[in-house]
């Protein structure tokens, strides 16, 4: 593989798009609901299967598959909120209990997918076609280009929605101070459901986009979950700009490692990167101060 700046930039952009989608979801859930959603990987896999079902029963066109993935992700997010947040949020020791509950969901969910769909992996249709494009002098596949275009557009739309809409205001209020938000009339449960549906939808989009390159399997959510966690941690839980910066950094580290050292060192260099970041800044690149959330 050649050391080509344009290739590195494009690969970084495509990785950063997917990591950003996942990391922002994890980050928003943590800062607004106060729980670490370990079932995000299950949402990812569930959305992949949802898109696969839609592609086989409804239509294999790009909008149908994308929408089905997003809808399945949102549905899974709602289910997680119904099991791990709504019955638990006013109980003692909520953070640990919700963490365990989401881990339980991820254990249960992966096994349920395995039980229903079997261990054989599924391939999604190539929704962006098989074409190759030449950009900055290098060839780029259609799925990568689709990812680079699709993810930032959706992310931008979500961020604008969060800035302008009433529901977005409520979510941002809950991120700043959940008690204060509840005092001024923001419904904790309805906002939580909205947050979980939104982040689930983002994970569903990421699932469809990533499944253009990889297959859908019951355990396919694990690596994206871990990478999303790494990015969210490095960026600082609760910070959207931090997550975006970290997504770009981690994507860059991954590309650089893959180009110079080889694919199997990717996770190691990523870990070294995040350990260094956390040792220097224990709350991540743009992490919130502790008292803000507690």
């Amino acid at each position: 593989m050649t050391f080509d700046p344009a290739y590195i930039i494009l690969t970084t952009a495509s990785l950063a798009s997917i990591y950003g989608l996942l990391a922002i979801g994890i980050s928003i859930i943590w800062s607004s609901l106060g729980m670490i959603n370990m079932a995000h990987g299950f949402t990812f896999a569930f959305a992949g299967y949802g898109a696969w079902i839609a592609a086989h029963t409804l239509s294999a066109s790009a909008p149908a598959v994308l929408l089905a993935g997003i809808a399945a992700g949102a549905l899974s997010g709602l289910a997680i909120a119904g099991v791990a947040f709504i019955p638990l949020y006013d109980k003692p020791n909520f953070p640990l209990r919700s963490l365990i509950a989401t881990l339980g969901i991820s254990l249960l969910g992966a096994q349920a997918l395995l039980y229903v769909f079997g261990p054989r992996v599924k391939a999604l249709p190539r929704i962006f076609g098989y074409g190759r494009f030449h950009l900055f002098g290098i060839a780029i596949t259609a799925d990568k280009l689709g990812t680079i275009i699709c993810a930032p557009v959706v992310l931008l739309a979500v961020l604008i929605w969060a800035r302008t809409s009433r529901r977005g205001l409520q979510i941002r209020a809950m991120m700043q101070n959940p008690e204060g938000a509840a005092l001024v009339g923001v419904g904790l449960r309805s906002t939580a459901l909205a947050v979980m549906a939104l982040t689930g939808g983002l994970a569903g989009l990421a699932a469809v986009l990533l499944s253009q390159t990889y297959y859908v399997s019951p355990y396919s959510g694990l690596t994206p979950l871990l990478k999303g966690m790494i990015v969210a941690l490095a960026g600082g839980l609760g910070s959207i700009p931090g997550a975006l910066i970290a997504a770009v950094c981690i994507g860059f580290v991954e590309t650089l490692t893959a180009v110079t050292l080889g694919g199997k060192f990717v996770l190691i260099t990523q870990f070294l990167f995040i350990i260094v970041v956390l040792l220097i800044r224990p709350r991540g690149i743009a992490g919130m101060l502790e008292q803000t959330r507690e």
Binding site: I36, L267, F271, L278, L279, P282, R283
Partner: peptide, 22 residues
């Protein structure tokens, strides 16, 4: 000694995955 709470839990989780991949 420096990282605590969720950050540490996720870090160790990642470390386990790192070992598995290796």
């Amino acid at each position: 000694t420096r990282i605590d709470g969720f950050y540490y839990a996720l870090l160790t989780l990642g470390l386990t995955e790192l070992c598995r991949v290796y």
